[in-house]
Design a binder for these strands. Structure first.
Lengths: 210, 210
DNA sequence: TGTACATCAGTGAACGCGCGTTCACTGATGTAC
DNA sequence: TGTACATCAGTGAACGCGCGTTCACTGATGTAC
């Protein structure tokens, strides 16, 4: 159970590989990630990385896993004092702005044919659960909608979460609306428009909660 | 002014190159687009394409331009009978579903450092104008918000469009919310959840207009 | 209508590049007696 | 504490690949007299 120096060293190098990989993704996008370039930047030869990762695909999968894990942790931390959708929303925005390419690795353009590692679905539903718990604390808003009825019939997906349809809809809407603002902002589609995206984000948040 | 056979032929080949390029993007994503692969699929040698495009970058820029143009035309057509946000929204969804990778080429993950051809900003603002005109026909909804006040101070971006702040906000919100649902749907983030994305889209539309 | 010439689409060979990945090897670090 | 051995990180050469792009060329199509 105690960690040998070699194990410690391995873990350290693995971490540095991932850090350099993130830097490279931030600079040139995920599709430009190259094992050889990462190795060069670490002052190592290319094949050396194969001691730490089975190949490029495994490295990318690991980065995706870490990205999901990181968001799930940020959510959990934001919900720690008390479940609160506004706190989650702001945590999401902070997380996205901290590293836009990481956000896009999770929520951006999918590569056709590529399938994310299977264990991220667990993390994804952990994120969803945190959001659902927070939305469940809100006072019920408005009348029952047709979409509530539809969701009632197909609620298997909530993984047994006991939230009523209105809460499920609330959480879904929260997700899509905040993502809508965030992804357009991060992609630069607001540049040239002279408003502050942070205020648009807050406006959407108000609309969701108020 | 009359078109010579050679010009007709050139235009034809250019068109086919772009079609094959779109197929390739649909199959493997935009970052995997390769001139040589396109040429091979047309039964030509790689260098032949340089008769038609100065290089890979020019081809991609042209595809992006066409994508914007296509959306602008779809919007214009949807607004033809009468300016109507609901019609625009449904046209957007149909346009996106017809070719998800084309949608992502416009609104998806940006490649850091890449700058879209300068003339697309004109098309982008044409799209925005169509949306603004449609939103201007809606009955005014709700009280003045803090974001309205903010937008009042920074309204240069609307390119001289005479819409009041509430309409600008309406159009922006329309854009971000529909994009939020669409992009998550197209990226496959709803797979496994047993609801119909079309109904969620309509629900958001109702919330926007009702 | 026929001939001489210019235009231009497309080819094939070549260049340099960087990629992922394998392999046999070196040399340092750790382990067992 | 010292020696013999095993483990394992990292190297350098090599393989095959596909990429974008250039260049000199062939051969067909169009133009001018």
């Amino acid at each position: 159970m105690t960690e040998t120096p070699r194990e410690r060293y391995r873990a350290q190098v693995r971490t540095e590989i991932k850090e350099r990989a993130w830097e490279q993704i931030a600079t040139a996008g995920a599709s430009a990630l190259s094992l050889n370039a990462v190795a060069k930047q670490m002052g190592m030869s290319g094949p050396a990385l194969y001691r730490y990762f089975a190949g490029r695909d495994e490295l990318i999968s690991e980065l995706i896993r870490d990205a999901y894990r990181s968001l799930a942790d940020a959510f959990r931390a934001a919900a720690e004092p008390a479940p609160d959708p506004a706190a989650l929303a702001r945590a999401l925005r902070a997380w996205a702005l901290a590293d836009p390419q990481r956000y896009f690795l999770v929520y951006g353009t999918p590569v056709p044919g590529y399938h994310a590692p299977s264990d991220v679905t667990g993390i994804a539903s952990e994120i969803m659960t945190t959001l659902l718990d927070a939305c469940a604390t809100l006072p019920p808003a408005g009348p029952r909608t047709p979409f509530d009825a539809h969701i009632e019939d197909h609620r298997l997906w909530a993984a047994g979460h006991p939230a009523p349809p209105a809460v499920l809809r609330r959480a879904l809407t929260c997700w899509t609306r905040l993502h809508g603002v965030l992804s357009l902002e991060l992609a630069g589609h607001f540049t040239g428009m002279e408003f502050d995206p942070a205020l648009l984000f807050e406006a959407e948040l108000d609309a969701l909660l108020g």
